[in-house]
Design a binder for these strands. Structure first.
Lengths: 350, 350
DNA sequence: TTGTACGCGTTATCAA
DNA sequence: TTGATAACGCGTACAA
């Protein structure tokens, strides 16, 4: 019994119907009499046929049901961020009704032969963040004529984008702090470049990552001259490191910190605790994202809530639209300000 | 210019060679003279041909370059766990040289039409954890004759598995605590069932999740009768909740806690801090996994280090072997005990 | 409601 | 080193 797997023709023959009829039984595209259907299904069962070969079906249909998601470097790093996790969930959920799943593709890999947008049977591509290495993928996808959606990044011309009102939202948080009387403020930013290292941010620095630049601009709209410290990415540990620097000198510590993500904010809070400062009594901290941060309890961050899952869904909807041939529009999602228990009025001067 | 995309035949015609020659130029399977190669590439460029259509190629080759990874419920939940993230990285890395990528497939979804192992063009399937809903996927994969690898779960018969010496490893940690003099110990477990809720664990309880059962057995080998409290999953917050229960009554609190994961351990430590206890001065805590936990600093857990990335790699290697037609062996990976700064001798009785 | 005929775009095989 | 041939397994007009 080393024979090849049964095909739909075998099933049709066994059931004494034509291949097209058998096909229709499985696809449901056309009504079939109950009797015939049953004969076909029985034949299939007896031959161990489990349905159309997906590879053949995708060639025929011109669609594979696979959406390529290009993630930068490591999955570990990418999925560390709750925003990305929720986003992927939304994306998966939205394309699922189209029978589509997500294929993880990495840019930064020197593995020979690794799958790419060029070699993988994808119907569309979703690019996240769009920094330098991603642009290459973008190029590729374009050449292949793939529908593309970019999340929080600029793909130039006619590529639909899913964006957030980062600047406006961050400004809201800054205004909140100003209303509370804070003037000694510091900013903790996300990465400023794909390979960015942590450290004080030079005022003239060129920030190549859109999210970081926009959120910074929003904070600067209210606090043009406050110092900003850059991190190597969105994590509690990075926030902790930044916070330690900020709180190192008791005489010059800020009374409020604007962190560009909830994870960073969580780290900053941890640093404050370490330094013997209470939040929000001595220091106010704002985050960004409004995602559940594991281990943050009992704090509830004052933050900007973005609907991360919706962001993914919007991307999925755009993909779906393009697959249907409908020109998708870019989407601008807005964040809402949520006051938690990590901000309070500026403390009396000691 | 609404014409269809160029095919390899078009390119061949333009270059005045046969389709098979053109094909060979792109696949590199056979030597081709430089002159012809150049002619073909030029022709391709002039026609905007970007290489073989992956869908057609996979039909012909009988291989799509896609490995389906069946993740339980939400991506958000699954990737919350650093072990899973690292595992996926290892897996991706190991199958990449075969031109394969990972397709995320979810079991628990009531979305009509969602992609499954039955409908997606996958060459192999990796199942993680293997609880009830996953068994259905397993069945499916079997029917389709797909190569299957199961990570930390029992797929029965002839399915290769990637396993950890959970019991032995956990026993080591328990012995470490015993050597330190601890007798008042409590265990904080992972989920006991796919839909498990948190709470005290009944001694008779049936534990359907292998990892949980094995690690518990290891702890019980040393501490047969200590109480165990179950959580709803591996997270800091769950560990925190469990820890709060354990430390609620100062008179009866344990001097050591065996947590079944590093995330849980981190939560337990947090709970101890909340209760005004110092770690390891008042309470010792052990974890399991040996993964970086964001926000755990400055603690370094006493834990069992599993090479999570290697686990993924082992799974990837097994997949690769099966794709090559080689019967893969199951793999048993071993954890190593690592003493951190979260365990110490039992404190003097007050 | 069912069957016929054809092509989707590629690549393995073998012969030249 | 190149070319001819034959599938790969299916879906879908269109006709019956």
């Amino acid at each position: 019994m080393t024979s090849r797997r049964a095909t739909i023709s075998d099933v049709a023959r066994e059931a004494a119907v034509s291949p097209s009829t058998a096909s229709v039984v499985f696809s449901g595209k056309t009504p079939v009499s109950d009797a015939t259907r049953q004969r076909v299904l029985d034949a299939a069962a007896s031959l161990g046929y489990t349905g159309p070969d997906p590879r053949a079906a995708s060639l025929r249909r011109g669609r594979s049901g696979i959406v390529g998601v290009v993630v930068g470097s490591s999955l570990n790093y990418m999925f560390l961020d709750p925003v990305q996790r929720l986003m992927m969930d939304g994306l998966a959920e939205e394309v699922a009704p189209f029978g589509a799943g997500l294929l993880l593709l990495r840019t930064a890999t020197d593995i020979e032969n690794a799958p790419t947008l060029l070699t993988a049977p994808v119907d569309a591509a979703v690019l996240i963040g769009c920094d330098a290495p991603l642009r290459a993928s973008l190029e590729t996808a374009h050449l292949r004529g793939l529908p593309i959606v970019v999340i929080e990044g600029d793909a130039g011309d006619d590529v639909p984008r899913i964006l957030l009102d980062n600047r406006e939202a961050q400004r809201t948080a800054a205004e909140h702090l100003r209303a509370l009387g804070h003037t000694d403020v510091a900013i903790v930013t996300l990465r400023t470049a794909a390979d960015g290292a942590a450290g004080w941010l030079d005022a003239e620095a060129d920030i190549s990552i859109d999210v970081t630049r926009e959120r910074l601009a929003g904070a600067r709209d209210v606090y043009p001259d406050v110092p900003a410290i850059t991190t190597a990415g969105s994590s509690i540990d990075e926030g902790l490191s930044a916070g330690r620097v900020l709180f190192a000198d008791p005489a010059r510590r800020p009374t409020a910190v604007i962190a560009q993500s909830d994870l960073l904010a969580a780290g900053v809070i941890r640093a404050a605790e370490e330094a013997g400062l209470s939040v929000p009594g001595d220091v106010s901290v704002t985050g960004f994202d409004g995602v559940p941060v594991d281990g943050l309890s009992p704090y509830e961050l004052t933050t900007l809530v973005q609907q991360a899952t919706d962001k993914g869904r919007a991307a999925g909807a755009a993909v779906a639209a393009m697959l249907e041939g409908v020109p998708p529009a870019s989407v601008l999602l807005t964040c809402t300000f949520r006051e938690g228990n990590t901000t309070a009025a500026v403390p009396e001067r000691r």
